[in-house]
Simulated scan of single mutants.
Amino acid sequence: MNDNHSPSAWSSYSRSVFIAFTVIALALIAYEHRVHVLGILPWLLILACPLMHLFMHHGHGGHSGHHHWGHGARMMPHKPKEKEDV
């Protein structure tokens, strides 16, 4: 027997059938468990707040002295403190 392809390669037909089966299975699971998914959405929103705070505020007040704010944020020039007369 002389095969032109490796035994582990999927044919395009097998790959298409697998993808179609996966999409249908995921759609049925999502439909059957929509109550559970919708019930957890408010908690995911509450959990997203501290996670966004941690990951999106990186670089503010870093050790280098430069601020890495997003585009459009204005940086105020650094003014040295005035010496007090004693």
Score class of each variant (00 low, 15 high):
residue 16 S to F: 06
residue 82 E to Q: 13
residue 43 W to N: 07
residue 15 R to L: 15
residue 77 P to Y: 01
residue 37 V to W: 05
residue 86 V to C: 02
residue 51 L to T: 13
residue 12 S to L: 06
residue 64 S to E: 11
residue 53 H to Q: 03
residue 86 V to N: 08
residue 38 L to P: 09
residue 62 G to H: 01
residue 42 P to M: 01
residue 56 M to N: 14
residue 71 H to G: 04
residue 69 W to D: 05
residue 51 L to D: 09
residue 52 M to Y: 08
residue 58 H to R: 15
residue 85 D to I: 10
residue 60 H to A: 07
residue 24 I to Y: 00
residue 9 A to F: 14
residue 21 F to I: 07
residue 24 I to S: 04
residue 56 M to E: 05
residue 29 I to F: 07
residue 86 V to D: 08
residue 52 M to D: 04
residue 21 F to S: 04
residue 45 L to Y: 12
residue 65 G to E: 03
residue 6 S to G: 14
residue 71 H to Y: 08
residue 17 V to T: 12
residue 39 G to T: 13
residue 12 S to R: 12
residue 29 I to A: 11
residue 61 G to V: 04
residue 50 P to C: 03
residue 57 H to I: 04
residue 57 H to A: 09
residue 57 H to D: 11
residue 36 H to A: 03
residue 66 H to P: 00
residue 85 D to V: 10
residue 69 W to I: 00
residue 60 H to S: 08
residue 23 V to W: 07
residue 39 G to L: 05
residue 59 G to P: 08
residue 39 G to P: 08
residue 86 V to P: 01
residue 48 A to M: 07
residue 65 G to I: 00
residue 12 S to M: 10
residue 38 L to M: 13
residue 48 A to D: 06
residue 13 Y to T: 14
residue 41 L to W: 05
residue 52 M to E: 02
residue 65 G to V: 01
residue 27 A to L: 10
residue 12 S to V: 12
residue 66 H to S: 13
residue 75 M to P: 01
residue 72 G to F: 08
residue 60 H to P: 06
residue 40 I to K: 05
residue 12 S to T: 10
residue 17 V to L: 13
residue 42 P to N: 01
residue 81 K to H: 13
residue 83 K to D: 03
residue 17 V to N: 08
residue 75 M to I: 01
residue 28 L to H: 03
residue 12 S to F: 03
residue 7 P to Q: 02
residue 3 D to W: 12
residue 68 H to L: 08
residue 68 H to V: 04
residue 17 V to A: 05
residue 85 D to L: 12
residue 37 V to C: 08
residue 14 S to Y: 11
residue 32 E to S: 14
residue 27 A to G: 11
residue 33 H to V: 12
residue 57 H to C: 09
residue 21 F to Y: 08
residue 85 D to K: 06
residue 30 A to L: 03
residue 32 E to V: 15
residue 28 L to Y: 10
residue 52 M to I: 05
residue 59 G to R: 01
residue 27 A to K: 03
residue 51 L to C: 11
residue 70 G to Y: 05
residue 31 Y to K: 15
residue 27 A to Q: 04
residue 11 S to C: 06
residue 72 G to C: 02
residue 3 D to Y: 13
residue 1 M to Y: 08
residue 49 C to L: 14
residue 80 P to M: 07
residue 38 L to I: 09
residue 48 A to Y: 09
residue 74 R to V: 09
residue 58 H to D: 07
residue 78 H to E: 12
residue 38 L to R: 12
residue 34 R to Q: 14
residue 22 T to K: 07
residue 74 R to P: 04
residue 34 R to E: 12
residue 53 H to C: 04
residue 68 H to R: 09
residue 31 Y to S: 15
residue 67 H to N: 15
residue 19 I to L: 11
residue 80 P to E: 07
residue 40 I to V: 11
residue 61 G to P: 13
residue 14 S to E: 15
residue 46 I to F: 11
residue 5 H to C: 15
residue 23 V to E: 07
residue 60 H to V: 11
residue 35 V to C: 01
residue 29 I to L: 12
residue 82 E to C: 02
residue 45 L to I: 15
residue 83 K to N: 02
residue 36 H to Q: 11
residue 83 K to A: 05
residue 42 P to W: 01
residue 26 L to I: 05
residue 6 S to T: 14
